[in-house]
Design a protein around this nucleic acid. Structure first.
Lengths: 210, 210
DNA sequence: TGAAGCATCCGTAGAAATACGGATGCAAAT
DNA sequence: ATTTGCATCCGTATTTCTACGGATGCTTCA
């Protein structure tokens, strides 16, 4: 039987070491290395460290999981990353899926699901649990409205509004007429389906647009 | 040497089991039980399960860590809770400290600090790391400015503003003149040191006032 | 190629928010 | 007992925001 070669990248020492202990019990899995940052991980990969799967935390101090996902495809596309995060926010999951993650697990999954995910991914299939998929779907349907709705100019205007600048000030800064900015504001309000600045800033904050 | 009797309460299976494995290696610590929810924990305590320390996660499905802290003091004040959370937000830390936690650790602390914390608390001393203390202090000093600045009416008005209501609508809802609400708005802007609604909502969001 | 959609731009008029000034009542401080 | 500060309330004047309408140029698609 083929051993599954695994790297763990997580800056939470207790969690990482706990994972090592748990996985040790499974004969078909071998942990070739365990590191605390994405940068360390990428160094290993660039030195042609062999591995089948990386268990990847998203929040790491120097180089986070997203950057790792991006680079890993270019450096060694054979290593399949499984994201293991405490966040179940839809935007995280969706972003990881887009960036080539083969799996996404929450840190509160149980041991059996972790093992299942590792084995599933090793066979070349992706592993996203029902809960995670659902979160992502919900996010997508909500997000499709908000991801690319705003044009560049509108996004810029929104940013300046949120800094407390008035229409006149924004116009001066962008070298256009106040009327133009007023139209931008109107259009932004329409697109985000709100009726005034207060609601706008609140919604924009929720959607991480500012 | 006296054994330290420990209970772990955390709904993240991998994390909890990892902790168990790590702590097993230390002869002066005995894990008497490990549970996945605060409710389970309180049941144990009410059945007079003996323990010196509880490692307590904050976010648990049924009964969270805050509720546990509150009840534990009444049920068995001899059990000393150490909060072990992934959140380093100042308000969490401050709240736990107020509610009688003997320690606060982040889930990314290393094994040696965990052991140190357990032993320190067992000797009757509190354990808050330098990083955690600093976060709490910063929170406190920031909070003192923002906690009680707004009067009840002002806070209510702010809430309604953030819902997108206009001055006129708020006035109708609170049965006062529009002029009154306008004054409230002016005063709210002054107190939070912002110059318009956009900035107001942004700052209020940051300060968790809405 | 012509239509349709959208980003960008500008104008006018009305609605809303903000600045400034001022009144009353209550509670804490001296 | 008087002062001081503050919450609450209201009025006027100015600034800012929003609704509605319309123009141009660019891209996409049938």
């Amino acid at each position: 039987m083929n051993e599954i070669k695994l790297i763990i990248a997580d800056d939470h020492d207790l969690f990482r070491n706990g994972l090592v202990e748990l996985l040790k019990k499974h004969d078909d899995i071998r942990i070739v290395k365990s590191v605390a940052d994405g940068a360390e991980l990428m160094n290993l990969v660039k030195q042609e460290m062999e591995a089948d799967i990386v268990l990847l935390d998203l929040t790491m101090p120097e180089m986070d999981g997203f950057e790792v996902l991006k680079e890993l495809k270019n450096v060694d596309a054979n290593i399949k990353p499984i994201v293991i995060s405490m966040h179940s926010a839809g935007n995280y999951i969706a972003k990881c899926a887009k960036m080539g993650a083969y799996g996404y697990l929450l840190k509160n999954t149980d041991e059996s699901e972790l093992i299942l995910a590792i084995r599933t991914v090793h066979r070349g299939k992706k592993y996203f649990s029902a809960e995670i998929s659902e979160k992502m779907i919900n996010f997508m349907s909500a997000q499709s409205v908000s991801e690319d709705v705003l044009s560049k100019k509108e996004a810029e205007v929104l940013r300046l509004i949120s800094k407390g600048l008035t229409t006149k000030e924004i116009a001066a800064q962008l070298f256009v007429s106040s009327r133009t900015i007023e139209t931008h504001r109107t259009n932004i309000l329409k697109k985000l389906e709100v009726k005034n600045t207060a609601e706008l800033i609140k919604k924009a904050t929720e959607l991480s647009l500012i």
